[in-house]
Design a protein around this nucleic acid. Sequence first.
DNA 1: CATATCAATGAACTAAATTCATAAAATGCT
DNA 2: AGCATTTTATGAATTTAGTTCATTGATATG
Lengths: 300, 300
Amino acid sequence: MLERIHLAIVLEVEKRGSLTAAAEVLCVTQSALSHSMKKLEQHLGTDIWLREGRSLRLTQAGQYLLAVANRVLPQLSLAEQHLRQFAQGERGTLRIGMECHPCYQWLLKVVSPYLAAWPDVDVDVKQKFQFGGIGALFGYEIDVLVTPDPLFKPGLQFEPVFDYEQVLVVARGHPLARAPYITPDQMAQETLITYPVAPDRLDIYTRFLQPAGIAPRRHKTIETTDIMLQMVASQRGVAALPRWLVLEYAGKVDVVPVRLGLEGVAKQIFLGVREADLGTDYLQAFIEQARQRVAPAVTP
Amino acid sequence: MLERIHLAIVLEVEKRGSLTAAAEVLCVTQSALSHSMKKLEQHLGTDIWLREGRSLRLTQAGQYLLAVANRVLPQLSLAEQHLRQFAQGERGTLRIGMECHPCYQWLLKVVSPYLAAWPDVDVDVKQKFQFGGIGALFGYEIDVLVTPDPLFKPGLQFEPVFDYEQVLVVARGHPLARAPYITPDQMAQETLITYPVAPDRLDIYTRFLQPAGIAPRRHKTIETTDIMLQMVASQRGVAALPRWLVLEYAGKVDVVPVRLGLEGVAKQIFLGVREADLGTDYLQAFIEQARQRVAPAVTP
DNA sequence: CATATCAATGAACTAAATTCATAAAATGCT
DNA sequence: AGCATTTTATGAATTTAGTTCATTGATATG
């Protein structure tokens, strides 16, 4: 079989001019090279070199083999280099899962400096998971989960990366727009617009309406934040979003945030990872990057 | 070191789904594969597979390695296939040396069917040699020498491929055009046009003029056959060429052949090769092709 | 013409790969 | 649930392959 060593020998002999010199570079004896190549020649049924006195001259087959060596050997050493980068966590694909719709805006701000700092790492963002975000993490579908619901299970590690307040968003002209805060019963007359997820995963239900036994007049779902806010601005309904996100849109869309209840609804976003991956440099670096961006930038 | 076998294992495990199945295909035991890959993993410092129960799932590094395998392995097997073709003389470059200017026309007729029959063989034609045609053959500059002057030396083999008559070419309106043959003394008044080679390699000198102690009035040299015949047609001189070549040009240029002396000058063209190369299929095939074209085609 | 250098070669040796035997874990089947 | 089967991992034994050593023959070099 044609092996890597044969290509290396042909290349090195051509570079150094003799078997003896090549042997030195390859850290074996001249005899070893002679035996190796003789075996290859027997296997192929053709000589690689013409033996002219005490020097070697490539045959046509040898010249071809040299061309192959020049082409293939760099591919192998590059592959090894890349694999070593994988080993040291300097290269890979970071697959991020999102279980928190509005966090996308925040994620973009984390990802862009991260990509600059880790040129050999690709980032992939996924939003749909067959068995939920935790399942995707366990099943190696994703490497990081961005979620407001940490689930402390063995093998996983969750870490809070930022706190924010979930608020009600209403149009500037809305009757509730000037209230310091709203009470659950005030929602009974409103149309609520949310992302299309189960109500038990929406804080406005679990932490505001359900405890008071109130339901909104109507409930519509919309996928994208932009359209959702357009709808709110045009008085088609109200929505619940992070305060920082509302403030970011303040200049573009005519909406205002209102506190949910006297105390407000406080939230945390967590980054979940597999404990086994904690040694991976580029993953650690991502968590670090996310932590630094603890206060989401707000355009006043 | 990353070896061919490692790539083969990764590829085959992915194709068959298990180490055990791959081992069977690769004709070794499952244990051997397990040991091999463990060693590679230790060398690289990263796992190739995630061991999940009794099945293997590629890690990111593993997926990369698979991609490398898919790219590199075909290159290696193609290289082996080509080398085996070199070995069996089914592939190579046939470097032809020419020591006989007018033979070029003949060569083209041999080469074109040859190339069609041997698609994996390249043909290269050379006309200048530092140490003469024989030297080029010995020095592996060329593989075949087309020459009218065989030199029977040990290690070389010459074979006649065709006979022809060297004739004088004169314009149709030339005084000698109607003679059945010319004598050396008739040349004393003529301008002789030849290829630019030493006179002792021109038959008209060595076998016609010199024996009679005659020299032509003038001697001009021209590189190409076409121009040479144009010159002859326009009465600027006479030339010596193979009869078949003159007949080929008969339709296009107004020249006629005249025998040199009563007996004419008979010539043979030989193909010279190194004896060591006689086993090479594509070389043998070339000689065979040349032999079949023993009578140069003549357009009447 | 002596000396040094280089490739080839056979035998001895060494290291590496492979097998064998077996364990541990997990899947599938009754 | 329990048993048979399948799969990977592992340590020791074995075999194979590769390497070195010692030497020869050929050929440049001074």
